[in-house]
Simulated assay, not measured.
Amino acid sequence: MTSISFLLNAAPPWVSALERGEKGLSFRAAPPKPSGASTRQYSLVISETSGGKVAVREGEGERLLPKCCPERHINPGGSFCIFLSSTAAILGPEPAVDWWKSLGDFLVNQDYANKHRRWPITAQLSHGSAAELQLKMEAIADRLGWRDEILSGIFRRQGWLGGKLPKLRKKTSKLVNGRAPCPRECHQLHSPFKKHSCGIQKCAGNCYKSHRHKLRRACPHRSDIEQLIILESERRRLDIEFTKSLRKDNYSCCGTMAYCPLADEDNGREERS
């Protein structure tokens, strides 16, 4: 069976007007939101290559989405990036069900982006090869319970990972000056807190004890923090290269999102020492 055959057999209830033709599988889709209400009606087409790879995009009729928008995960040419490696061949019924679920989530996110002018942070993924680095960062963050602050840094430019990063040495990619304060603003906690703990929460307003910032070399999470900074520095570099390639091909900002690297000349540029 072909990828489209598997997808056709696994089509969910929120898909209608399925029609298989020369250009692929055309249909209308309105998946349910978490509230239970349906999304807008999207007119879509799934095409398949000779190798079984699939691509989904809006059809030629009524369009609800930009033709290309990296922040909305719409590739040059209009195909959707619904998850990492989402163009791989569909090799069975279960992958087909998973693919449809991912498409449904993608369209729900598109309605969210249309309303809020930003992609849901928990569903955000870096572009191109930068996505692999993000997944490594998330693995570190999940082990430490830092997922929210890591994602806020990457995609909202908030917190210690969202601004200017500590400098890296060109030859070794190591952070300079281990005696600098911990970039996460960790500080020493007084009694009755653990003497060697690492915290960022603040004491009550009537606390007058000293809370010295931990030095990076004394932070119990030093290795993880330095690895996150190194990965984020490289992720930004790859993200910048991705944006440059779009500009080179004359793609411009569609204006539908609050932040777009195509409209940001700096694009998070970082200096190295």
Rank of each mutant, 00 (worst) to 15 (best):
E232Q: 10
L228E: 05
A218W: 00
N206E: 07
K209G: 02
K194T: 05
I229T: 07
S197P: 06
S197L: 09
G205A: 09
C219E: 01
H213C: 09
I200E: 15
A204H: 15
K195Y: 03
E241T: 04
I200D: 15
S197M: 09
I240A: 12
Q188N: 14
K214C: 08
E226N: 15
A204L: 15
K202A: 06
K209F: 04
C207H: 06
I230L: 09
R217G: 01
S197A: 10
K209W: 00
I225Y: 00
A204E: 15
R212C: 07
K195M: 08
R216D: 06
Q201H: 14
S191T: 10
H187A: 07
H213L: 14
F193Q: 11
Q227I: 03
I240S: 12
P192W: 00
F193T: 11
L189K: 13
R212I: 04
L189Q: 14
I229A: 05
E234F: 06
K194V: 02
R217A: 04
Q201E: 14
E232N: 11
I229S: 09
K209R: 10
Y208P: 02
S210I: 09
K214Y: 07
E241A: 10
R236L: 02
L238D: 06
K194H: 05
S223A: 15
I225L: 05
R237M: 04
C198P: 04
F193C: 13
L238E: 11
L228T: 06
K194C: 04
I200P: 05
L189H: 13
R222W: 04
S191P: 12
I230Y: 04
R216K: 13
Q227A: 08
E232I: 00
C203S: 12
P220E: 05
N206W: 09
D239G: 11
R222F: 01
P192G: 10
S191L: 08
S191Q: 13
E241C: 05
G205Y: 04
D224L: 06
Y208F: 10
K202D: 03
S233C: 09
D224I: 00
R236F: 01
G199H: 02
H221N: 14
I225G: 01
Q227Y: 04
L231Q: 08
K195E: 11
E226F: 07
L231H: 08
E232H: 06
L231Y: 14
